[in-house]
Simulated scan of single mutants.
Amino acid sequence: MIRRVTLPLSDDVVFDEIVDVRAPVEYAEDHVTGAINLPVLTDEERQKVGWIYKQESAFNARKVGAALVSKNISQHLEEHFSDKSKEYSVLLYCWRGGQRSGSMATVLSSIGWKVFVIEDGYRAYRRHVVERLEEQVANAAFVVLNGYTGAGKTLVLQAIEAQGGQMLDLEGLACHKGSVFGGDPENPQPQQKRFESLLFDSLSDFDLSRPIFLEAESAKIGRLNLPNTLWQKMKSAPVIEIDSPRQARADYLTKDYEEWLGDIERVQATLDRLRGFHSHQRLAEWKERTERGEWNALVLELLEEHYDRRYKVGGTGHFQVPSGKVKLDRHDSASVARCAEEVIEKGMALSFGEPLPC
Rank of each mutant, 00 (worst) to 15 (best):
A140W: 08
P245V: 04
M167P: 12
G183N: 13
L9C: 02
G102Y: 11
K325C: 08
S236F: 08
E288T: 09
S57K: 04
R126V: 01
A334T: 15
P185G: 00
A162K: 14
V137C: 03
G150H: 12
F206P: 09
E294Q: 14
Q47Y: 04
L92S: 00
A58H: 05
P39A: 05
N296K: 15
T254A: 03
G353Q: 09
R275A: 04
V137R: 02
E17W: 04
N72F: 11
V64C: 01
R309H: 12
M167A: 15
N228V: 15
A140M: 05
A334P: 03
G178P: 15
E345Q: 14
E131R: 07
S89Y: 05
Q136T: 00
V299D: 02
E135W: 01
K48H: 12
A23Y: 08
R289S: 03
A66C: 01
R246E: 13
H278K: 14
T106G: 01
Y88W: 15
Y311C: 00
V313Q: 05
I36V: 12
N228F: 10
L253E: 12
Y27G: 01
W113E: 07
S110A: 09
V137T: 06
G150A: 03
W231Y: 15
L302Y: 09
D83K: 07
A219F: 06
L208M: 04
G317N: 11
Q55I: 11
G150E: 10
L350F: 04
V129F: 05
S236C: 02
S110T: 14
G152Y: 07
E17L: 07
G147M: 09
L92M: 05
H176W: 05
H80L: 00
L170S: 01
A297R: 13
E215R: 08
N139P: 06
Q99V: 11
I212W: 01
H306C: 00
S209M: 06
H280L: 10
L300D: 12
I36G: 00
K235Q: 15
Q158I: 00
W260R: 13
L226R: 07
S323E: 14
R309D: 03
C358N: 12
G353F: 09
I240M: 02
S103A: 10
S333T: 15
E161T: 14
K84Q: 08
L199Q: 04
Y307W: 12
G276W: 13
W51K: 13
R46Q: 02
N37R: 03
E29C: 02
A124H: 11
P188H: 05
R275H: 14
A124M: 05
I2R: 00
A219T: 14
